[in-house]
Amino acid sequence: MISLEHYLIVAAALFSLGLYGVLTRKNAINVLMSIELIFNSANINLIAFSRFVSGDTEGQVFALFVIVIAACEAAVALAIIMSLYRILKDVSLDEASVLKG
């Protein structure tokens, strides 16, 4: 039988992969994809808990809102990348470095 922990471990692995992508990728679009992995891992958690722990649809409703938010964020992020691309003609985090951290 597939238990709650199985789902949670897969979600943890997905979260770590997303984190890995965020830390190592330079291309802004690629970082964005890694962020989507993080959102998905949280959603798997929410839905798994919704079924196994709370026994109602609270977690599913939360996950639904997360999907809406992820869509908004992706749209705005891509708009910013487009806008910057027009100025730079090459979207790479290394390029975006007139500002020094």
């Binding site: 943890a12 692995a13 979260f15 770590s16 992969l17 984190l19 890995y20 830390l23 190592t24 990728r25 330079k26 291309n27 690629n30 790479s92």
Partner: peptide
Amino acid sequence: TQTFQVLPGALVSLAVFVIL
């Protein structure tokens, strides 16, 4: 795309995975 800091990034995310 070029990847940099692969090793530290891999170590950090591996640690996160183990903890989680």
